[in-house]
Simulated assay, not measured.
Amino acid sequence: MEFYMKLPRNKKEMTIFIAIISVISVYIIAPLITCFEIGFNITVWGEAMRVVPFIWISVIIVVLLTHKPADWLTGKIIKKEDSFNAHIIVNTLCTVFLMSILLTIIGTWIGVGKITMEPIYNFFYKWPRNFAIAFAVEIFIAQPIARFVMKKMHEVQEKVVQNEC
């Protein structure tokens, strides 16, 4: 029942679900990582917010590229009969794992405004922190909010159907 109520059922709902998660994630993760890189002050935060729209576009592209590999990886780790929470946590873990690999490099390029080898040279120093931040934001903030919105949408849809009958 939780799968049915808390997850998207069609492409329109999937678009809403991805939009909610990606907007929340980008507006929290990008400034946080930038502040860890440069320093926690209002100027750094402002600079991070300036590039957020470009990061958001790259996040959407990376979500679309990593969705199927993350689902495949999730299927290798978890069984179909495992709990809803187990599926959500493992899928989030796999998705964030793949996305954080790409976005550790792409996000740096967007943030500094040029393509350099720096994020590749420093990948193994920066990726674990970026992964931890992204996973925490996804599992504790973005995903729960998006699932709550889906649940409320489905409850409203069910009430409309019941009223029509």
Rank of each mutant, 00 (worst) to 15 (best):
V112E: 14
I61K: 05
P31G: 00
F97T: 11
N130S: 05
L65W: 05
M117W: 15
E164C: 09
I55W: 01
F123W: 07
A142G: 01
K76N: 12
A86Q: 04
E164V: 11
I115S: 03
T116A: 06
V23D: 01
V160N: 05
I38W: 12
E47C: 12
F84H: 06
F3G: 02
K11E: 14
I18R: 02
M49W: 12
P119F: 02
P119Y: 01
W109E: 09
I60L: 14
G75C: 07
I42V: 14
Y4I: 10
K126S: 09
F54L: 07
V137Y: 00
A30T: 15
V112F: 14
S100K: 03
F40C: 10
L73M: 14
V112Q: 12
M153T: 08
E37C: 11
N91G: 15
A132F: 09
R9I: 02
G113P: 14
S83M: 08
M99A: 15
H87Q: 10
L64F: 10
T74E: 08
K114M: 12
A19E: 02
C94E: 08
V161L: 09
F124T: 15
L64W: 11
N130W: 00
F17K: 03
V23I: 12
A134I: 02
M153D: 03
I33R: 01
L102D: 00
T95M: 11
E2P: 10
V156R: 07
W72T: 15
A132N: 05
I105R: 00
K114Y: 14
K6W: 12
I24V: 10
Y4M: 09
A136N: 05
V90E: 06
V44F: 05
A48D: 00
G113D: 13
K152W: 01
E155T: 14
Q162G: 07
T43D: 13
L98P: 04
V149D: 00
P119E: 01
I106W: 02
F148S: 10
I106Y: 01
K151T: 10
E13C: 03
N10F: 03
N91E: 12
T74N: 09
I106T: 05
L65M: 06
